[in-house]
Amino acid sequence: MNDETKYMLKQLAFYTFIFVVVAWIVVPLIVATLYAFAAPKDYYDPNKVIPLHFTAKYVKTILIHLGAWEAIKNSVVVALLTIAISFTLGIPAGYAIAKFIFPAKDTIKLSIVALRMFPIPVMAIPLVILYIRLNLIDTRLGVALAHTAMALPFVVLITSSIFAGVATELEEAGMVFGLTRLGSFLKITLPLALPGLAAAAMFTFVMSWNEVFVASVLTLSHRTLPAQILSIMAGSSGGAAPDYYKFAAAFIMTLPAMLFVFFARKYLITMWGISLK
């Protein structure tokens, strides 16, 4: 009986801990979502911990009158451009690191890791001057180019590990049976790597979607979503935005990220080298 009680108590403590941890992540998300749609009178009622009356009014206002819908479109364009450019540049490099052995490979890999760590503000502030000169300031392409610089090291490293996971023998078999190296890559390696690449693309999308500093600095009228939200919610002008607008804004920003986690959760995990049971 003694051992059994001890065991039960241990189990209980363990699951309580798990519950607390999961709640710590999930509760704020639920609360923010509920509050995004809460009627102000419920929100300002100190007795209503959980709102009971809902309205989509503020989400709509932000989307339509405060420019969030336009900003979403900008964000999508910027993110897609970022994926396009960073994958065009990154896939060949990732492939080379995965499949070739050459001197200086480790050095190159390491310097790409180091470049991944390069602080974004450092890049963005001086870039303004160049962009003014090149007429890239306040353009979506300009932001995408900067986001590419941020995403590219990640794309190179992650694609190289994806390609490394595709057996070289498969590709060599293709070459033995008459394909060129490029043909073999396109017909064999790429299709096999596709699911991984799709997850990497989604993650790149999220990176660009979430980035706020570069986008805020480099744009004024073509703001991406986080930049737009930041400019209406914070700083000198936005401190006075009513709370329920803030929650509506949080919801709009978080929704795509949540959908990403939901649909790509397995890849999101395995991308980091974690295996599930």
């Binding site: 509760v27 998300l29 609360v31 979430n210 706020v212 803030k246 949080a250 920003m253 999101l268």
Partner: peptide
């Protein structure tokens, strides 16, 4: 996958 801006707003609601 959640941006720092969104995280700030979410914690504001808390």
């Amino acid at each position: 996958t959640i941006s720092d801006v969104a995280a700030g707003l979410i914690w504001y609601s808390m």
